[in-house]
Amino acid sequence: MNKALKNPTVFILFLLPGLILFFMFFIYPIFSSIYYSFTSWNGVSSTVKYVGFNNYEKALGQERFWISVRNNGFFILFSCFIQVPLIVFFSLLIANVKRLKGLYKTTVFLPSIMSTAVIGILWGFIYEPDIGLLNKIFGIFGIDKIYWLSDEKFAMLSILVTNAWQWTGFYIVMVLAAILSIPKELDEAAAIDGATGFQRATKITLPLITPIISVVIMLSIAGAMKAADIILVMTKGGPAGSTEVMATYMIKYAITNFKYGFGNTIAVLIFIFTLIITVVYQLLIARRNERIEY
């Protein structure tokens, strides 16, 4: 077997199926999108008209496009500064539970395996102005009825909370696995030296799980840039485009309005923005936390 693997022909034959799939489902779609982004095409006609950078000028000149970019920014900020700290906090709590730890892990993970459509409908009932659970609770304290999904002031926040509820459990399981992999001797030695639980968490646990927290932030950024399904289910980008993100903006043009060329322009812009953000994050933050030695 070792002799066969040293043969270049055999080695290439082993790699070939993976390379073909990689080309078909990654490389070709990217270059195809770039090509069509410079065209005016409805996705059906055999006529493809080259328009140069007109689509890019049109997109970058539209106010609604920049509103969608801003909303993607809200997703990123909410994920990094609210969701991630909560993920770490709950992971530390569950890690220190002595009984029913498996039950807690299963419970927090459940929303992640549910369909986004189901979650959108479920939270739609929670946000319902007249009979929704949230307004019923607020009504007890004398707070007036709030139109969570139809008021521009609250619609985006409602989407962010729902999205966070769906994916927080998935990331908690990741962070929890990192916490439980830390040698117990480190924590026990600190406890013997008189360190409190808070000190052990902040001085030992958090520094050692920094790499996985960095991964969680990267995944959160990537998820924020491609968010679309939860918005399409709950608000369809409304009210008045206040919850529109780049992905839903792209879908409306490419599929609903049959402007496939312009839709591909938005897709390329999403790719470029995501690439810039991830590269900047990797250079400024992630590289410092790549390796932790126990």
Score class of each variant (00 low, 15 high):
residue 3 K to I: 11
residue 8 P to G: 01
residue 11 F to A: 10
residue 15 L to R: 04
residue 15 L to W: 06
residue 16 L to F: 12
residue 17 P to G: 01
residue 17 P to W: 03
residue 19 L to I: 06
residue 25 F to R: 02
residue 26 F to M: 15
residue 30 I to L: 11
residue 32 S to T: 10
residue 35 Y to G: 05
residue 37 S to T: 06
residue 38 F to A: 10
residue 41 W to G: 05
residue 45 S to Q: 03
residue 48 V to K: 06
residue 48 V to Y: 01
residue 52 G to I: 02
residue 56 Y to T: 05
residue 57 E to W: 15
residue 59 A to L: 06
residue 59 A to I: 08
residue 65 F to C: 08
residue 71 N to Q: 07
residue 72 N to I: 01
residue 74 F to K: 09
residue 76 I to K: 02
residue 76 I to T: 05
residue 82 I to S: 11
residue 90 F to W: 14
residue 95 A to H: 14
residue 97 V to W: 13
residue 111 P to M: 01
residue 113 I to G: 06
residue 113 I to C: 04
residue 114 M to Y: 05
residue 114 M to V: 09
residue 115 S to N: 01
residue 118 V to G: 06
residue 119 I to L: 04
residue 119 I to S: 02
residue 123 W to D: 00
residue 137 I to D: 00
residue 138 F to R: 00
residue 139 G to E: 00
residue 139 G to Y: 00
residue 139 G to N: 04
residue 142 G to E: 00
residue 142 G to L: 00
residue 145 K to M: 03
residue 147 Y to S: 05
residue 148 W to Y: 05
residue 151 D to V: 08
residue 154 F to V: 05
residue 155 A to G: 04
residue 157 L to N: 07
residue 158 S to K: 11
residue 161 V to P: 01
residue 163 N to S: 04
residue 163 N to V: 01
residue 168 T to S: 14
residue 172 I to D: 10
residue 177 A to H: 14
residue 177 A to Q: 13
residue 180 L to R: 05
residue 184 K to P: 02
residue 191 A to E: 09
residue 193 D to N: 07
residue 194 G to F: 07
residue 195 A to S: 14
residue 200 R to V: 08
residue 204 I to P: 13
residue 205 T to V: 15
residue 210 T to F: 10
residue 210 T to C: 11
residue 211 P to K: 13
residue 211 P to A: 14
residue 217 I to D: 09
residue 219 L to R: 08
residue 222 A to D: 03
residue 226 K to H: 10
residue 228 A to M: 14
residue 229 D to I: 01
residue 235 T to I: 00
residue 238 G to M: 03
residue 238 G to D: 02
residue 241 G to A: 11
residue 247 A to H: 09
residue 253 Y to L: 08
residue 254 A to L: 10
residue 256 T to D: 13
residue 258 F to E: 15
residue 259 K to T: 06
residue 266 I to F: 04
residue 268 V to Q: 02
residue 281 Y to K: 09
residue 283 L to P: 11
residue 283 L to M: 15
residue 284 L to G: 11
residue 285 I to L: 12
residue 287 R to Y: 13
residue 287 R to L: 08
residue 287 R to S: 12
residue 288 R to P: 06
residue 292 I to F: 12
residue 292 I to V: 15
residue 293 E to P: 02
